[in-house]
Design a protein around this nucleic acid. Structure first.
Lengths: 223, 223
DNA sequence: AAAATAATTTAGGCATACCTAAATTATTAT
DNA sequence: ATAATAATTTAGGTATGCCTAAATTATTTT
């Protein structure tokens, strides 16, 4: 029935999940932007995904798309594979965290269930990937987190970096240089309410001033 | 120029290489049979491969196909990746040798050069895959071998199994059960000229009678 | 409310890569 | 040499998934 889920469809489902789970609308335009294709192409695909049996998305003209339970299941399966692959590329092959996303994007569509099972076991069934993104369990439940944006940290408050929500390789390398990686302890030394700049003390490093463009990509847990 | 080499084209090139390097003709029918598609589809693709710039195959109507230097290079690249992947699935993820072919067939089309480099290094730049197939070097030279068919072994002769030239999972499991895997020492106890059966002593095992259908798939080096 | 702008959809096309059926070419047997 | 068979090619068609241009719908501004 629902085994006609092509790599392309997987990418759509993953992207819809990424938008809606983030509170954003999975609109034609937003999907087109994230997928790097024309809006018209998205319209065509959403119509198709909604007319499959079972439907993978709920779609009404000019109203954007939402995943059906079947669509969400398929999305979580791909997301699980992607994040396990990222973790495993780092742990097992020594990849740097800025290079794993691209590789995982291709591998996620071709690995077998056995492959998934083996790397999950080899990694000890991790709950987060190298960027701190939660990894859905084998029965496709997304772990809940208490991550809050670094932008909400104020003078004197201490926290631990939990997640870095960006895929851009140069930015990831920059963050690594600052020590702003999952697990790092940070203290807010100062906060400028005008430009949103945060002066951060990353454990074991000199203080650094970080702008809101970066802070909004970093998620923490307060201590 | 020649970066429009799709996964499909890679499969054609790999298959043509497999036939011609084996002394067989890369005929339309043979390719169709190996690729599991209709002969007419092969004709269309061969015409296309021959008309690319640079051409990947030499093709003349009713004459089958042969790889150009560019085509052979692309074929060796895919074969290298396939065999490295097989080795690495066994070594690093604990796959059994009968399961790796299928997985490698999908992965070979998507891994990056970095991935290839990393697994080659992690494996110590192996020269054979788990079935004993030679792995082309990083500069795409196929290692030469002295492998001869097990069918040529005669009473009293000793040899080492070097290669098992079949992909069929049930047969591979059967051979593993007999100990007929690369590296195994064998002695021919008897040979029947009528049915081609060979009675083999595999080191550390009871003697076994093996028919020509199996023997022709196994390649050895005489001691 | 009307006009302007933004978002979305429809329509018509293209490329890849497969298919079947019919036509052609090559090979083998009589 | 002719007929039968086998191999191959041509022709026309399908499905996926993208594109652009034009049309439509929704939203915002005046």
């Amino acid at each position: 029935m629902a085994d006609n889920i092509t790599p392309n469809i997987q990418d759509y489902l993953k992207t819809i999940y990424g938008l809606t789970s983030n509170g954003e609308e999975a609109s034609t335009t937003a999907l087109a932007a994230r997928l790097g294709i024309a809006p018209a192409s998205v319209t065509g695909m959403l119509q198709k995904l909604a007319s499959l049996t079972p439907p993978l998305v709920i779609y009404r003209k000019h109203q954007g798309a939402a995943l059906t339970p079947e669509g969400e299941k398929a999305a979580l399966e791909v997301i699980r594979r992607h994040r396990l692959l990222e973790a495993w590329l780092v742990e097992s092959l020594g990849y740097s965290w800025d290079a794993v996303h691209e590789e995982a994007c291709k591998l996620e569509h071709v690995i077998s269930e056995e492959f998934e099972t083996r790397i999950a076991a080899a990694l000890g069934h991790p709950v987060r990937d190298p960027h701190g993104d939660p990894i859905p369990s084998a029965d496709l439940v997304m772990p809940s987190t208490n991550d809050i944006p670094l932008t909400s940290l104020r003078e004197g408050e201490k926290a631990v970096v939990r997640r870095v929500g960006c895929k851009d390789a140069p930015l990831l390398r920059h963050l690594e240089g600052l020590g702003l990686v999952p697990g790092a302890g940070v203290t807010a030394l100062a906060h400028s309410p005008f430009d949103g700049n945060l002066t951060l003390q990353v454990a074991g490093r000199p203080p650094a001033v970080v702008g809101p463009a970066i802070c909004s990509q970093i998620f923490i847990e307060r201590l």
